[in-house]
């Protein structure tokens, strides 16, 4: 088998992290489950946020999971792609806003 850092089958084993640290693992999964419950935001809206963030943090497991979650919720591919762009825009904006720091430093150092 080809050796890679990421194995899609590992996603199913995610709950196993609790085996090596029961208290923290359980607290995490309780928290995680609670976060995605219907609240002030709908579960559908949270699913789209999760999909956008999955791309920003470049987590292949999360992308698989929330693409499937979106399909299950009837979220369209147009909505999914717009969510990814929203994430990408924030991420590129975060890079570009540092341009202001560069400009300030440039000006400070220049005569």
């Amino acid at each position: 088998m080809e050796k890679t850092y990421y194995d899609p089958a590992d996603l199913k084993k995610f709950p196993k992290i609790t085996e090596w640290s029961e208290e923290l693992g359980e607290k995490f999964f309780d928290y995680y489950g609670k976060v995605f419950e219907e609240g002030a935001l709908t579960a559908r809206e949270k699913s789209l946020i999760a999909l956008a963030v999955s791309h920003v943090v470049k987590c292949p497991y999360c992308i698989d999971a929330y693409t499937k979650d979106g399909l299950q919720r009837g979220i369209t591919k147009e909505e999914m792609m717009e969510a990814v762009h929203a994430g990408a825009a924030i991420e590129s904006g975060a890079t570009l806003v540092h341009g202001v720091q560069m400009m300030k430093k440039y000006d400070k150092l220049s005569m």
Partner: peptide
């Protein structure tokens, strides 16, 4: 290849 979600919200 995915399962249906909550019937009421669908």
């Amino acid at each position: 290849a995915f399962l249906p979600t909550n019937q009421a919200s669908m």
